[in-house]
Design a protein around this nucleic acid. Structure first.
Lengths: 220, 220
DNA sequence: AGAACGTATTTTGTATGCAATATAAACCCG
DNA sequence: CGGGTTTATATTGCATACAAAATACGTTCT
């Protein structure tokens, strides 16, 4: 029996992944109509798997289905962000609470290392790298909860907000605040203090909320 | 301009709904393979919309895709329930917290009425009606949060657990506990006490957890 | 010139057909 | 008889073809 079977992912899954990336990167802006023929030619697949992929993205909320008029990349309104962030706060809080108990010490040490890197990026004003490490820390903590469903749920919500957050330009002071909150986070994690970590994470998302909404407001 | 346009839902949406109902009601038991031809004949549609519907259910987590082997109704394991319930606790807690602030007084009064009905059903040992009113109360509180994304997220998670909970036979004493918790819930809501309502809801889900897991364990 | 109608074209929705893979059955050989 | 291989069948995956709806366009009429 060969257990090293190579299972090529079904086309519609690959297509969905590709589309997700396109939407996430901004290659497909919110509101854009997804023209099936066009996309088919671009990706070199037929309409069937493409349509199946679109249906998946629709249930994920990344695109919106308009009967007999196809799908558009869903637009993330200020209301959406206002709805999603409190949910993420709760869930990230829960994740932290669980992580504080479940994570192994070496995993926590790793987070401290990445956190230090992040601080360096902050000091050097390296925005991209900063965001990357920032997100990695959050992901690691969430994953540290050991609750895969929680990870999935957070990711699903996060994906929607990310595009909005993308446009969110941080002011220097809000950036400083976020970094100091991160410092507290890691400290609470090292102390394995569920309540404190949860509280900080909730506060952290609240900070993010005001940052994003402030930015959205300025840009209107 | 006519705003009362009749938009017939696309076939794949109707099919998805139908399948959801089938799975939810137990007409399609967990682990059952979805035979495309068979289902097509049953529903009188072709494979294309059926397959699109199946893809949607897959991203919802109700069915599991097995490459080149079709889809099976996903089985809800004890681990799944263990993962999902803490998440629902957080989210229902958040919902209650928001509801305590946002709900109108007449809506709260309505909940009190339904709660009283539920208690009557409890006393008369009318299980089905009890579950119905019970669920209605939870739904109304969640919806009272005014956060549609939260409602959707909870429903999505709830759908997965429901099938497991279905088999959960309550003992008389756990039932009594649940009812008394509900009493506290409504009282906290009437007092518009977010913290207390949140705490009770979280505790309430915890009670549910032990009930379900206890039942799952007994049935193995 | 502009609005309204009707036609043409594009685009989506659904059904069907063919290829590839998995499952079941028959068969052969030890 | 039983294990393993080959062949047949069924089922899924993908592509194409047709039908229905929506959009775009041109024409007509006021």
């Amino acid at each position: 029996m060969n257990s090293n079977v190579i299972v090529r992912a079904p086309l519609h899954v690959q297509v969905a992944e590709r589309l997700r990336l396109l939407i996430d990167s901004g290659g497909l802006a919110p509101g854009t109509r997804l023209n099936e023929n066009e996309l088919c030619q671009n990706m070199g697949v037929s309409r069937t798997p493409l349509r199946e992929a679109i249906r998946s993205l629709a249930t994920e909320g990344l695109v919106e289905l308009q009967p007999n008029r196809g799908a558009i990349v869903s637009v993330v309104s200020q209301e959406d962000v206002t709805e999603i962030l409190p949910i993420m706060a709760s869930l990230e809080g829960l994740g932290g609470r669980l992580a504080a108990v479940h994570m192994r010490t070496d995993q926590i040490k790793q987070i401290r290392q990445i956190h230090n890197q992040m601080v360096t990026h902050y000091q050097n004003n390296e925005v991209t790298e900063y965001f990357e490490t920032n997100r990695l820390i959050h992901d690691l903590i969430t994953e540290g909860s050991g609750n895969q469903t929680l990870v999935d749920t957070i990711n699903s919500l996060s994906a929607k907000v990310r595009r909005a957050r993308f446009s969110a330009q941080m002011t220097r002071e809000s950036w400083a605040k976020v970094v100091s909150e991160h410092e507290e986070m890691v400290t609470a994690l090292e102390a394995r203090d569920p309540d404190r970590l949860e509280a900080i994470l909730i506060q952290h998302v609240e900070t993010k909320r005001t940052t994003i909404l402030g930015s959205l407001q300025r840009s209107e």
